[in-house]
């Protein structure tokens, strides 16, 4: 039998997500989608002096994608944009603490991918 992926911490984050909700105005709002299984996510970030001061998300999807969003928003709150840019998919797997099968990587990395796009778009905004 495979290792249990629905560990208590994953289920806790799924059922009682942290940082869930909308806030506006915000520095950047970013949509993310995993069309293969219908997960959706919107990230809201407030960034000041190069640091994520506040972050929240709205979303609908499987336990893995939503727990990852909950955990990742916890992780990046107070983090500098420069450090966020150093995050890798491996950090996300470590954060989740479960083995992610190839079929679930898109779920596990939805929040991460959305965050990367948000940061890129934020930096583009700054350049203008």
């Amino acid at each position: 039998m495979d290792e249990e992926i629905y560990k208590q911490n994953i289920l806790d984050h799924y059922k009682h997500p942290h940082n869930k909700g909308i806030f506006s105005p915000c520095s950047i709002k970013q949509d993310g989608k995993n069309v293969s299984c219908g997960d959706s996510l919107v990230l809201y970030l407030n960034i000041g002096n190069g640091v994520v001061e506040d972050v929240s998300f709205e979303g609908d999807g499987c336990a893995i994608s939503q727990a990852a969003a909950s955990m990742l928003t916890d992780k990046v709150k107070g983090m500098s944009v420069e450090n966020i840019k150093l995050l890798t998919p491996g950090d996300i797997y470590t954060m989740l603490g479960i083995t992610i099968s190839p079929g679930r990587t898109k779920c596990a990395l939805l929040a991460y991918g959305t965050l990367c796009t948000a940061i890129k778009n934020y930096e583009k905004l700054l350049d203008h």
Partner: peptide, 28 residues
């Protein structure tokens, strides 16, 4: 319970079902 999680738990028990939009997004 998201359908993907249902399919994953079934899969862990060696039961093969499908979760998603089944290539029929307008219908879903």
């Amino acid at each position: 319970i998201h359908p993907h999680d249902i399919a994953q738990i079934a899969g862990q028990n060696n039961v093969a079902i499908r979760a998603g939009h089944h290539c029929a997004m307008p219908l879903i």
